[in-house]
Nucleic acid binder design. Structure first.
Lengths: 224, 224
DNA sequence: ACAAAAGTGTTGTATATACACCCATGA
DNA sequence: TCATGGGTGTATATACAACACTTTTGT
């Protein structure tokens, strides 16, 4: 192999992961507090450097396991941010991912020091260009939800139609009509009723549904 | 700065650009023949290494200027391919872009040695993972066209409605009804008629239209 | 006059939207 | 018995899909 010409960039690569969840009718994101320079004590997206012989998708899963304590969640490559000025340490590009995690899977990480799960709306002033990455992820996630079944990854295995509707309302940012929503979602054929009900609330028990597929599928007709 | 721990990847970064054009009712792609190892003499997507202090988007424009001889064309980041086995020379990740160029802007590059503009359908056996990148680009381009005005970037400034319809037919892969297409496209309000006609053909001259905006815009309602 | 593409409306069908009441449970 | 969310149908408006003939030019 020839020596590298000196106009070529010396690059390091990282992965940052935008972990979304929905809770209290609010879209939230997982953040970690940095414990070293640069941006020490700032909040940032969870991330890390790419290891030798590792794909960024594997690195993203590693970050999800180590920092968010979750496995088997939906994650997808988002965009690569590579402005040479984005990191003061040098030319460090980041392959950003986003992941969707049901709130009930984030119990253990809530207890960890130096992590926060906070409303996306109230999030700004993150380290590096992470505000920009977060904004980009929100946009992508919104459109994804409109033509795929990814909502499954924000809900427990069994869920009520109202819970599913809440997911869509939070992400769309406006309420939708209950009857029309149910008609639409049932006509898509992506979920099916179980024979179980959610009891123990102070109102009529709701029938529990499940997604037919727990893997990412794009729909022919859009949901919204 | 500390020394780099040895489990971190030594990375180089490249950009590869999928340059699409439409000609003879066919979707075509610009390819270059490699003149060095690995994959010497194989066709590949035009691309190159990232320079110091350069963003991948700038590198993509540089590639477009140097290899495709075009400027001011639509280009957009596609996806980052980073399987450590994708390049035998080492851990080389590529930030792929796709660009849309009207056929009439590719005149000079046609004459160049070692370049080819060929039908996407008939393209396979490219160097590295470029078949995969090309497939990914085709898919993305199809969906983009459905909810944006990017068709402008595949046509000359002035064009007939039949030419525009051809763009959609080629990318959708099936013919569409002329009257319905015109109704739809006019109702979107993204193009407007000029007072010029395209004469010199052996049939009735067609009114020429232009896009209101020559910059990428996402539409509220999808075209298809 | 002929060939070839340009241009133009209507109708039926399917989809989306708007809207209000009764039901089952826990407290 | 009351409060709370669960569950259900219809009528109207809008969007989509199918379809054929006349016009203008070049040869």
């Amino acid at each position: 192999m020839n020596a590298k010409p000196n106009y070529l960039a010396d690059i390091q690569a990282t992965t940052d992961v935008v972990v979304f969840t929905i809770e209290d009718k609010t879209l939230k994101v997982l953040l970690v507090q940095r414990d070293e320079e640069p941006f020490i004590n700032h909040l940032s997206l969870p991330g890390g450097f790419l290891h030798k012989r590792e794909k960024s998708s594997e690195a993203a899963l590693r970050v999800l396991k180590d920092k968010a304590k979750v496995r088997n969640v939906f994650s997808e490559q988002l965009y690569t941010f590579d402005d040479p000025k984005r990191d003061p340490r040098g030319q460090i590009i980041t392959v950003a991912y986003f992941a969707l995690v049901p709130a009930n899977k984030l119990l253990s990480v809530r207890l960890a020091k130096n992590t926060a799960i906070q409303s996306v709306k109230e999030t700004k002033g993150l380290a590096f260009d992470h505000d920009e990455i977060l904004n980009y992820a929100v946009k992508r996630m919104r459109t994804k939800l409109g033509y795929s079944n990814v909502a499954y990854s924000l809900l427990p295995k069994l869920f009520t139609l109202s819970q599913l509707q809440e997911v869509y309302e939070v992400i769309l940012g406006h309420p939708v009509d209950k009857r029309n929503f149910r008609k639409k979602i049932m006509s898509l054929g992506i979920i099916e009723p179980t024979n179980q009900k959610l009891t123990g609330q102070k109102h009529r028990p709701a029938l529990l549904y499940k997604f037919k597929k727990h893997s990412y599928t794009e729909l022919e007709e859009p949901i919204f």
